[in-house]
Nucleic acid binder design. Structure first.
Lengths: 230, 230
DNA sequence: TAGATTGTTAATCGATTAACAATC
DNA sequence: TAGATTGTTAATCGATTAACAATC
């Protein structure tokens, strides 16, 4: 199998000249999807892939893939394509996979427990050493092997353990206070599932996941369809 | 309080000349957010709002709001602004709120249970009469008062009860089979939480909610920040 | 009527796609 | 070397914003 001298070239590329075009939010939001498809290709033992093949697979244009990847420097090789494992690794690096990030979940309700029980953090190399809640019945117990602590201790815990991400799964009413405590704790990102809309500020990046919005978007399409049938 | 003759005008507007500009996906994805802010304004007993005020509140441009709403016909009134309840109601109609939609959850794991226990469906007037799973220990039980049935019975149940939405919270491995059963059941929308990427086809609209992607997007920002500090 | 604010058209901006020269 | 395929520039497309005439 023809596999040219990409190793050396790519070793050099590890610190490419910073950014050509600053990656737009649109590009960044596509990275996790690339990462998923590349993970799948690794599972299938694919060694290399061209932008065209990947484009067909993902139903996007080859141009977009090449343009996107080039925001971060050259990950491919002319005449060869992209080395699957290498590209996967580089995108993983961009996304902070296995880079020592750590998270705590705040709110030990159904959703908080579901997230704690999932592999969503482990799978990306993100430590999840604690869950916080105010419920005396929950404090002191474990969920999926993770201890539940008193919300009061949140800032201190975050500071001591250098927690980088807070996951907010409390009801709307508690959200503001939790944001305050997480900010005090020095986290740099908040993943917000509460119904309250949060904004990135004070150097804390917020990622809002409004599941209700996704459901309603689906409802729009479903409703349109049923009206079309009439 | 000056509140001109908007009632009559808006009565007429209920069936406006179809679409001026077909609403783009970008516009549709913004509707739930408008809906949330309007819900909040109703809670605050606001009667009217101008595009500019709403824009300030939501941190978007007034132009965008007016442009977005105009895809669907005139919901406002020159010189007055928008009637909060009326606009809320109209956007709700677009999004199929309280319009007889119904859903079933497939996969009675942590996430499925969390969704069943939440008010996400009830709150939008979507019926949730059943959960399906293959686990013999779960079949026959109830989760948040909702019965868990055998996956085998899914297509028949969906057909008989005219279920419109399937919520897919199974592991990746089961996803394909569940999509098959839901399609057989005649649903018109699938809300996919499984790690498998699904495409809209055969007249079934898919809304992919890849929570891991949201987390990774946040990680990108967090990682960038920590590198900036160095 | 005068003032306010929408609905809508035109201008701008950004993102996507196409094309091709560079190069492996 | 010839063929393949990237990296990158230029063209196109779509979405956002600005401006203003219509009108309540």
């Amino acid at each position: 199998m023809n596999r040219p001298t990409e190793t050396k070239k790519q070793e050099n590329a590890k610190k490419p000249t910073p950014f050509k075009t600053a990656p737009s939010p649109a590009v960044i939001r596509r990275l996790p999807r690339y990462y998923r498809y590349l993970s799948e290709l690794i599972r299938e033992n694919r060694l290399r892939i061209s932008s065209q093949e990947l484009a067909d697979l993902m139903q996007v244009t080859a141009s977009q893939i090449r343009q996107d990847l080039n925001c971060f420097g050259g990950f491919g090789q002319q005449g060869y394509g992209y080395n699957v494992r290498y590209l996967h690794g580089e995108i993983g690096n961009l996304l902070g996979v296995e880079s020592g990030l750590s998270a705590v979940i705040v709110g030990a309700g159904h959703l908080g427990s579901a997230l704690a029980s999932s592999h969503i953090f482990i799978h990306r190399g993100i430590a999840l050493p604690a869950i916080f809640d105010i419920d005396r019945n929950k404090i002191g117990t474990c969920i999926a092997g993770i201890p539940v602590y008193d919300l009061e201790d949140l800032p201190m815990f975050c500071r001591e353990r250098k927690i980088t991400i807070g996951v907010l799964t409390t009801p709307k009413e508690a959200a503001k206070e939790v944001v305050h405590l997480l900010t005090e704790g020095g986290v740099s990102g908040i993943w917000n599932f509460s119904n309250m809309e949060l904004r990135s500020e004070n150097g804390v990046t917020v990622e809002n996941t409004h599941m209700g919005d996704a459901l309603m978007t689906l409802c729009y399409a479903v409703k349109e369809q049923s009206e079309g049938k009439k």
